[in-house]
Amino acid sequence: MNKKPLILVTNDDSIVAPGIRALIAVMKEIGDVVVVAPDSPQSAMGHAITINNTLHIEKVKIDADLDMEYSCSGTPVDCVKIAVHEILKRKPDLCVSGINHGSNSSINIIYSGTMSAAVEAGIEGIPAIGFSLLDFSWNADFEPVKAFVKKITLEVLEKGLPDSVILNVNLPKLPVDEIKGIKVCRQAKAMWEERFDKRTNPQGKDYYWLTGEFINQDKGEDTDEWALANGYISVVPVQFDLTAHHAIQQLNTWNLNS
């Protein structure tokens, strides 16, 4: 009898978010599930870790069918670290993060706690996938994408991933019969044109709200933004080696040692 894969589930929207509960439901159909997720929302935390405060974990019982669910006081990356080094008796076969409430396509991956948790798993040598739905609503409907989440997960478990590669999967907010399929893409060249909304509190002290507009400068039809805008699920392979290999030859022409 084949042994079920051990799957670590985490996110950045908190352990009670509907997105992670939907992801847990799918993963329970595939393997043995352990959940370690933040006890409160940690969106846009990026790859932050807790070093100046203590970390706390608490065993919780949200899903009656799960024996190992833990809420963590730290960031999404903290959740993966403490799961691997303190909670699990062996390295999981897969880590899945999400399903995030909102897009993590293009440059958003840099800020994403969802994707940073998946990247941390990749650093630990664990195949990892981050899933995000293009719907920021707490009451987002995850049912139309569950079959696609399962399909991608099974493919990763069967085929594996290239060394040091993590998948960034974004799912359009569409009825299931309007999703055209899955496209492997590159990350679009896009950014946030940011502004700060300056206000003054009753005590006369200034404060700021970050706001802005997402600008896609990329006209390519092989990007995640194009895929999502045209009814496809985008799958972008990402890596944590940030070396700009194409720039090494040019920098070696500089007179750095003279």
Score class of each variant (00 low, 15 high):
L55K: 08
L167Y: 05
P175G: 04
P5M: 07
A25N: 09
I15T: 14
P76R: 15
E213V: 10
V77T: 14
I87H: 14
K159D: 00
K173D: 00
D67F: 14
V34R: 04
C79L: 11
K189L: 02
S73L: 14
S137C: 06
A22I: 04
Y111F: 13
S106E: 11
E158T: 13
L228M: 10
A118N: 03
Q203G: 14
V84D: 01
V9Y: 13
V176C: 03
D206Y: 12
W209C: 04
D39E: 06
F240M: 01
P18V: 14
T114I: 09
A244W: 11
A128Y: 08
L210G: 04
V156D: 11
A128W: 09
Y207M: 09
D65W: 14
A44N: 03
S14D: 13
P172A: 12
I62S: 02
I7T: 06
K28V: 08
D177W: 13
D32S: 06
L228V: 07
D197E: 15
L174R: 06
H246Q: 12
V156Y: 10
N257S: 06
I179L: 01
G212N: 05
P202D: 13
P162I: 06
V36R: 06
E213T: 11
I24N: 11
E58F: 00
S73E: 01
Y208R: 02
P38S: 06
L174F: 02
T10F: 14
M27V: 12
P237K: 03
K146D: 04
T243N: 05
V16Y: 14
V36G: 04
G74I: 03
L210D: 08
L8P: 08
T153I: 10
E213L: 08
G231L: 09
E158F: 12
A140K: 04
W138F: 10
Q239M: 05
V16F: 12
K3E: 11
Q250D: 07
S105N: 08
L6H: 13
V235H: 04
A17C: 15
K3H: 10
L228T: 00
A244E: 13
F148Y: 15
H56M: 10
P144E: 02
A117I: 08
V235W: 02
E155A: 13
E193T: 05
I129F: 12
K151P: 00
G231F: 13
S106T: 00
E158S: 14
I110D: 02
D32C: 09
V9F: 14
N2Y: 15
L256I: 13
L66N: 12
E120K: 05
N216W: 13
W192A: 09
P5E: 12
G212F: 10
K173W: 00
V9S: 08
E194I: 09
E213D: 11
F148W: 07
K91W: 08
D39C: 09
H47F: 04
N170K: 01
P162M: 05
H85S: 00
V235Y: 04
F142M: 05
L94I: 03
D67G: 15
I62K: 13
V9D: 06
L171W: 01
S105C: 09
D13H: 12
V80S: 01
I82S: 03
S14A: 12
D63R: 15
A229G: 11
